Computed example of a mutant assay.
Amino acid sequence: MITCFIAEDEQILRRGLILTIDWDKMGCKVIGEAANGAEALMLIKKLKPDIVITDIRMPTMDGLSLIEQCLGFYYPEFIIISGYNDFSYAKKAIRLGVSDYLCKPIDEEELKQTVERVCKKIIKNREELPPNIPVKIITANDIPFAQFKEYSNEYNTGKNKYILKAIRFIEDNYGRNITIADVCRKLIISESYLTKLFKEYTGYSFIEYLTYIRIKNACILLNNDDIKIYAAAEKVGYKDQRYFSALFKKYTGLTPKQFKERQYTVEKASDI
């Protein structure tokens, strides 16, 4: 069951969203509500919903500020509802990775379609998250990180040549939306064969290794105080900041914001 939280200061609209929408039919459950941003933030921290539907204009804290605060510790999907069809709001919402921006008066069918689409995205992301991976300490500051093998030219023989070339392709292209199919076209081998080789010689799947390379390079980028989290995510191949943040925490034990605030220093790849 996918959980949902509604933050809306207009009581009639808030109760209407909760009571008139058939949430069960969409595989959802409303687990909380709030009439202002500060209360919403407190409850989101406690309840950890999968989806947050929030108005932009609310007492104590507006919806965009609420989203920014949430992204420091938790990464639900956000749907904004607003009486303001203002491009500046929409632009900032897009930068924050909001799933959709709906204008009042709310069209019930449009909201249902939006929630259904977001639910499918959540389910897909859950399926794609890599399994738990053994961790080790890689810096003087004791950051836990995925334990991977990285291969050097001493293995440049036989079948390992394919692995070396595949890893080199990943390291050169991790910032793009690459798949194992792209690597196979480059190496002129089948996906099933490369999948088998990757598991045999590295102990990990292609997507696990790609994710590792991306997160490691994200750590390096986030040590730069000037770079924003969403910009670091895009540079390492993730358009969805929430998905990036969830992966980052899974691999490092820290949110990107925590990582930046504590100013950890990641060792060079050759030292990992």
Rank of each mutant, 00 (worst) to 15 (best):
L194I: 03
K235I: 08
L197D: 07
F148M: 10
K121L: 15
L164A: 03
A232K: 04
Q113F: 07
G203I: 10
S192Q: 11
N224A: 10
L187F: 03
N177D: 13
I143N: 09
I123C: 04
Y155G: 02
S205E: 10
Y212H: 12
Y193F: 13
I122G: 07
T114P: 01
S190W: 00
G158T: 02
N177R: 08
I189G: 08
C119M: 07
K120P: 00
N153H: 06
T211K: 01
D182N: 15
F148S: 00
N223A: 12
Y201R: 09
Y212V: 05
D225S: 15
T139H: 05
Y204L: 10
E200W: 01
I178E: 04
S152A: 08
E128I: 01
I215G: 08
C219F: 11
L164M: 08
N160L: 06
Y162W: 07
E234K: 11
K199I: 12
K124D: 14
I188K: 14
R117S: 15
A232C: 09
I138F: 03
K165V: 00
N217E: 14
P131C: 03
K196P: 00
K196W: 04
A181C: 05
E127A: 15
L197K: 07
A181H: 10
D225P: 06
S205L: 02
P131K: 11
A146P: 08
N141D: 15
I137R: 09
N217G: 09
N173A: 06
D225K: 15
L222R: 07
Y155N: 08
F206E: 01
S192N: 09
I220E: 13
R126V: 05
K186H: 15
N223K: 12
N177F: 04
F198C: 11
V135Q: 14
Y174E: 05
K124Y: 14
I137P: 00
N153L: 12
E234T: 04
G175S: 12
E208F: 00
L210F: 02
F198D: 01
L111K: 04
Q113M: 11
S152E: 08
I213K: 01
N160R: 09
D226M: 11
Y155W: 09
E109T: 14
I170S: 02
C119Q: 10
Y204W: 07
K159T: 12
I180P: 04
R176C: 07
L187Y: 05
G203S: 09
K235R: 14
E234N: 10
C219T: 11
Q147D: 15
L187C: 06
A218T: 06
C184E: 04
K186W: 03
L210T: 04
G175Y: 13
N125E: 15
